[in-house]
Write a protein that binds this DNA or RNA. Structure first.
Lengths: 333, 333
DNA sequence: TTGTAAGCGTTATCAT
DNA sequence: ATGATAACGCTTACAA
């Protein structure tokens, strides 16, 4: 059985109230008593029960973090940053990987609420793709909700937004300025963020007076081998393109590999741009130029916002985080 | 304010006991009453308080997961598997990234204990490198502790072990059989697991009657650029080796890149083997042959063991998980 | 089938 | 400076 303050109380000959005071470093306890109590705690290896504490205080200093899948490099780096910052502030992280199923997301959110987390952070725009974000707005009535890379309008909801649209548009524009007319776009999702990126691609073309061609837009699961195969097929079919922009680094690497496989020199005969500036872009050979939307910055800002909200301060419900294009050897631009 | 079973009780005209019964799907409640209570719950958007429940039952259906850093690909994939399996069983995961500091590991473990997690899973052999694993043995008096890829002897501690030693030894032996005599070994840590790998390298050499040369053992932080630079220097200095075995895929990729940078064809003039069979090994160009110690299998077995322990079954305190060498284009073997 | 009441381990408010 | 006690929201005998 676990030991309680009653055990400490009995063994040290003081009341549980005093034990509690010592435990919480409250003043109004004589130094002698304090020492005695601490000694007993040490001796019997006492660990306070956070439930009991949480029951009374109605806070357990824990924040729920929801994401599709931590094994995804991008999400893992976000979760890592969030967890670290939360811990610095004395909060724990209850991790919840939802997968793609909408019903699961809903019920997992309920689980987090029932564990009385002090806030919930949703990472990735997957949470607003289904259209039905009502349950999130509903949940925000109980605790503040922070979105990393997504936007939902609602009371007590705070959104960190990345300019995915502008970043892709500018990158594509640079390719166009570099003389490219036929640019392949590879994507894997149609979440909010995914649509923003695609719109960026299309807008850049339109602005340059280049027609949008469906055969130059390739949907493909985010899987290296599968992407490589599909891009390779396009190459073999002679669809004809001399630049590739991908919604994910993994696909960018696939594009590079598909080209090399066919003896197409990169970046001379084909330029490739990925997204996320992850370690994959650095592993690529040649190195993959990649768009960095700065998740880490988004996460830091998110935590900042959250603690501001905890303190009752007024914060904007959406904050835009800027990104940048990180150039490596897969492009000439 | 949050709603409680008292609110439901009042509004539906039944006692809190009945509300509780409905909440827990217990029998002995008339269908009519059940429906009425459920309707009220739905109406006022009731969320049960897990603290209160946990206080009485002394379990909150949550498992603590500790690792150095989830942004590490290997650890992220482990955490992902653990979280998923735990959730299937109805458990949440309290994530705790400790960083390298020993004192932090200690105190974070205390935090988990105070949150009354039902078990603690330690991922990675970092937890037993400091030598002082007393606090873990101590913690095991309160809850079962599972180690992924590490071994500590103690009551209520269960260890999933990987044969890092044998895997590296066999891989190096294969290189030796392939005609290599001067094989560079690159490593980044001296944790338990790290030492096992190195021992595997040395043993393979010794068994083949090849002397161990210090200049062929390179310590290097797990960082792509830094590793590439250091391995490159060795190449430039003419240290002379025609195969590289790395303790991490990231370093394997670095070795491949260092060689390519100098026009050394892979695998013809140099063979490279990495470790973990992560996505990095697939991104590498040419693809990196890599040792897979099967974290996912370790994690599944860990969860299996854990729930066996929960049910009071007797489980071995150490389980060995076998791995394999996954061959890609960076080797001829 | 339903209700009453004790108990879970804290914190906080009064007294003393 | 210290102690007694209510309160937190739930589960679960035990009664009715």
């Amino acid at each position: 059985m676990q030991t309680t303050i009653y055990d400490i109380s009995k063994k040290s000959g003081v009341s549980i109230a005093t034990v509690s005071r010592v435990l919480n470093n409250k003043k109004g306890v004589s130094e002698k008593t304090r020492q005695k109590v601490l000694a007993v705690m040490e001796e019997i290896g006492y660990t306070p029960n956070a439930f009991a504490r949480g029951l009374g205080l109605n806070t357990i200093k824990t924040v729920g973090i929801m994401c599709m899948d931590v094994s995804d490099i991008y999400l893992a780096s976000a979760v890592s940053t969030l967890e670290r910052e939360l811990r610095h502030k004395g909060y724990d992280s209850l991790l919840c990987c939802t997968g793609a199923n909408a019903e699961d997301k809903r019920s997992y959110l309920q689980v987090l609420l029932s564990k009385r987390v002090d806030a919930i952070i949703l990472v990735g725009s997957h949470f607003i793709s289904g259209g039905d974000s009502g349950y999130i707005i509903e949940a925000a009535r109980q605790v503040p909700i922070i979105l990393i890379n997504g936007y939902i309008k609602g009371e007590n909801i705070y959104c960190m937004l990345t300019d995915d649209f502008g970043l892709v548009r500018d990158a594509v524009s640079q390719l166009i300025n570099g003389g490219h007319r036929r640019i392949l776009y590879v994507y894997d999702t149609t979440t909010y963020s995914g649509r923003q990126k695609m719109d960026g691609y299309k807008t850049a073309l339109t602005q340059a007076g280049i027609p949008i061609e469906e055969e130059l837009i390739l949907f493909c699961k985010k899987n290296l081998e599968e992407s490589q195969e599909k891009i390779g097929q396009l190459l073999d079919q002679g669809v004809g393109f001399d630049a590739v922009v991908c919604a994910e680094d993994e696909q960018g690497v696939a594009a590079v590999k598909a080209a090399i496989e066919r003896g197409i020199p990169i970046p001379e005969k084909m330029e490739v741009i990925g997204y996320n500036n992850s370690i994959l872009s650095r592993c690529s050979e040649p190195g993959l130029t990649s768009i960095d939307n700065r998740v880490e910055a988004s996460c830091m800002t998110a935590i900042n916002t959250l603690f501001g909200v905890f303190e009752g301060k007024d914060f904007p419900d959406r904050i835009l985080i800027s990104g940048e294009l990180v150039k490596r050897s897969s492009t000439k631009i």
